[in-house]
């Protein structure tokens, strides 16, 4: 176990180094000068030179890279050009918003998806199965931001149940927080729940064809007990895998959904930075989200051993 963990952490570190290289390198792709986005047309050449010097852009590339890694080792992602403050502080401030949005959406999608998928597997090829699978496929085909706009149109504009956008911190008003985050979380969950349902169905069906299920039924256990106590736990590993994939996908989905509902999360910060070419925030934000994603992946792999004692982590 310890050996496995060390090996995995080593592998993750290697990928993180590559991720940091790619995050750093994305700025090389920019045609022209990254500072041009921050100077108005009246700026003199002297001002441009000074800004380039302040940002260290007048140094050779290898020195910029050494500086970037030097700061990274101290947990410093640099300073935002536009916000004029530390990138890591800006990200950490917005992190609780994004995490609560994703956690709520993941809980909802996980519960509904696993329940629907299990039900569909139990009633294979009967109409509830076909209805659930049709709904799941439809959900996978809907653009997330469009669904968000439609939900705003229905629940905020027409029915007036919730505000059309904006965010209320939990500490300020828990009910206000829930009203502000309910639609975004629902949007994020609805586009992913179909994927969880499809994978759960396949995993449970796989188990249902095995001998010990027939034995359990033969010894007189009720259908519900066979499904819940025998089939579902044995389908846990593939289900965990898909929930892990969805958790990663939701980080990406949150980027878009935060934009639709004007929620001040990490995704909105990074998209804003991309649009305004605030490249220290782009580099730091990409690296940060990738690190979260890799950590989630590792956590899911470790959970395999918890979910299924037969899994040996070596």
């Amino acid at each position: 176990m310890a050996f496995y963990l060390a090996k995995r952490l080593g592998g993750m570190l290697l990928v993180l180094v590559l991720v940091s290289l790619l995050s750093f390198g994305i700025i090389w792709l920019v045609p022209g000068d990254p500072t041009s986005a921050f100077l108005d047309a009246s700026a003199t050449a002297e001002q441009a030179t000074r800004l380039r010097h302040e940002l260290g852009l007048d140094q050779p590339l290898w020195q910029q890279m050494v500086a970037w890694y030097g700061r990274l080792l101290h947990g410093d992602l640099g300073r935002s050009i536009l916000l004029r403050r530390s990138v890591s502080v800006a990200i950490l401030e917005r992190l609780p918003v994004t995490l609560s949005l994703t956690a709520l959406a993941l809980a909802f999608a996980g519960l509904v998806g696993v329940a629907a998928g299990t039900l569909a597997a139990t009633l294979q090829n009967r109409w509830p199965d076909q209805a659930i699978m049709a709904a799941a496929l439809l959900g996978l085909s809907v653009p997330d931001f469009w669904l968000g706009l439609m939900l705003i149109l229905l629940f905020a504009v027409q029915l007036g149940f919730v505000p059309t956008g904006g965010f209320v911190p939990f500490g300020e008003s828990p009910s206000g927080w829930f009203r502000s985050i309910a639609l975004p979380a629902a949007t994020l969950a609805l586009v992913q729940v179909g994927f969880i349902a499809r994978m759960t169905r396949a995993a449970v069906l796989d188990v249902l064809h095995q001998d010990f299920i027939r034995t359990a039924a033969a010894k007189g256990l009720g259908r519900a007990r066979v499904i819940l106590c025998h089939a579902l736990p044995n389908a846990a590993v593939p289900i965990l895998t898909v929930v892990g994939i969805v958790a990663g996908a939701m980080l990406g989905g949150a980027v878009i959904v935060e934009q639709v509902f004007s929620i001040p999360g990490v995704g909105r910060l990074i998209v804003g930075a991309v649009l305004s070419r605030d490249y220290p925030v782009i580099q730091g934000g990409l690296l940060f989200l990738a690190a979260i994603y890799l950590t989630v992946n590792l956590a899911v792999d470790l959970l395999y051993a918890v979910a299924d004692p037969r899994v040996r982590l070596e």
Binding site: V15, V19, L22, I26, I27, L29, V30, P31, G248, A249, L251, G252, G253, V255, I256, G267, I270, V271, V274, L275, R277, I282, L286, L289, A290, A291, Y293, L294
Partner: peptide
């Protein structure tokens, strides 16, 4: 490791 949509947004924004 990057969210695919964010990677696409970043590349598209950088390229124009």
């Amino acid at each position: 490791a990057f969210p695919a949509i964010l990677l696409a947004i970043a590349v598209a924004a950088v390229l124009g």
